[in-house]
Design a protein around this nucleic acid. Sequence first.
DNA 1: CATATAATGAAAATAAGTTTCATAGTTTTC
DNA 2: GAAAACTATGAAACTTATTTTCATTATATG
Lengths: 282, 282
Amino acid sequence: MKGLLVRIDDYVQNAGEAEKQLISRLQRNPESVLRKTIKEIAKETYTSPATIVRLCKKLGCKGYKDFQSTLAYEVALFRESRDIAFQKITQKDTVEDIIYKVTKKNIESLETTRKLLEPKTITACVKLLETSRTVSLFGLGTSLLVARDLYLKLLRADVICNLCDDWHAQFLTARNLHTGDLAIVMSYSGLTEEMLQCAKEAKANGAKVIAITRAVESKLAAEADYVLPVAATELIHRSGAMSSRISQLNVVDVLFTAYVNRNYEFCMNQFGRTHIQKDGGT
Amino acid sequence: MKGLLVRIDDYVQNAGEAEKQLISRLQRNPESVLRKTIKEIAKETYTSPATIVRLCKKLGCKGYKDFQSTLAYEVALFRESRDIAFQKITQKDTVEDIIYKVTKKNIESLETTRKLLEPKTITACVKLLETSRTVSLFGLGTSLLVARDLYLKLLRADVICNLCDDWHAQFLTARNLHTGDLAIVMSYSGLTEEMLQCAKEAKANGAKVIAITRAVESKLAAEADYVLPVAATELIHRSGAMSSRISQLNVVDVLFTAYVNRNYEFCMNQFGRTHIQKDGGT
DNA sequence: CATATAATGAAAATAAGTTTCATAGTTTTC
DNA sequence: GAAAACTATGAAACTTATTTTCATTATATG
């Protein structure tokens, strides 16, 4: 069932005059409705209890009470998620505050990234992973860490892959790609000139290109066959966008998990052969 | 104000007979209370509306209605966080499911990690970062990625630090440490023999040791002066613990942010000097 | 222009929640 | 050890909130 506020919004077009009054009031401040009685709302909006009850029923509730508690549930969730958004770290913050805010920031950017990811794109990327002869990874700085993470994963799944640490070597790798190869280019900002060059080179040589970046409109994205978007996160201090790599890793997780799921038997077999310690961890 | 269910639990000891009946009913299924009237609850528990209202007031609510809406809020949040926990990925899952579940898993492990982190420990670790002559980082596999991440951060803040890629070099680094140096050892499992050796060596040479691990009871943890705990995450498939590195990165974020906050002016100045691109990103 | 239809509010009816008060059991005091 | 004071409790009266009914008005339809 859709959320109540969404249903309200859907219904506006069919609403009568009194109902429009009501809806406008509800949308302006849904939270305060929870603390008011049906009579108070009726008075505020120059309507009547009867009209309110009718509206509640049209929205799929049993009555005003049911409406209130459904709304309470929604508002609780919304408030929680809004809480997260406006927490900037200041010098006054205690260590406890920092633990809370930093974690919430990271969670927020995961949520945002999730909303940006399109199943179709993931599916297309997984197919490329399956059908490409080789997979080459590209990244610098923090994005190199993400590339390494995906590299370790692909290794374990026995995908033929390649990642060079320094950018000259990466560029040479790009130059050697051919039709049937896949390049995955990671650049959070989408502005890194070196990555753009790698993407161009890969493309020019007939390879497919996937970009993992926040910059869906960038030159890098334009160069790519598929773009896996990452949430743009504000800075914490001016210390660089922190959550970015966590979001990028989340994209990597999604991509890899989707890949494994489509190649289940084979991958499970591989994992058995490639885990290093009993629990596979380090 | 404490949560309602907590307050209920606190109150049990002072409760009379009828009240105990009530409380037991409330605790058994708080959610269903939301859909019941005061009379229904009275009947179910062989008590009376009056007793219920009194209990609500003792718990700090204005009456039964207020009690219900406070509870609704709490239940909504709880249900949300419980929803997350039981989502295992199966072969039947669509790509859309995978996007959702993988992200939720990662969020869940961030939440758990947050709860494990103790402000005192962070503060102590930040002090070590401030006062140590040098900081050396240790890690292998996925944990090496985390180490590299912290390394990049410390570099930007002009902390004298060191990280070697291969484990032999890491071990030699540990051997060269002295009193006044700091070693930060990352091992998610806490079982990696190589990391244990590095920690022991560092300790033996008089250096302080911080461990970032899920294994608070491990030999590695025993060797460390401070342990920064990371949530233990179940595996997604058998492909290795995915969320672990995200949690580890979160710990790194917290540690580094706390450090920056205590050395604000200096770090901000440094960040100005060390950012490579306009937005500092890659 | 008459008639059907939909929207609305006033007021009655129903239901919910709160308060008061009487009772029974318990503890304290002399 | 009995009277007094206190506490916990539920029945019933009271208050408040919600829902339903029904009459009125406006609007569309043939």
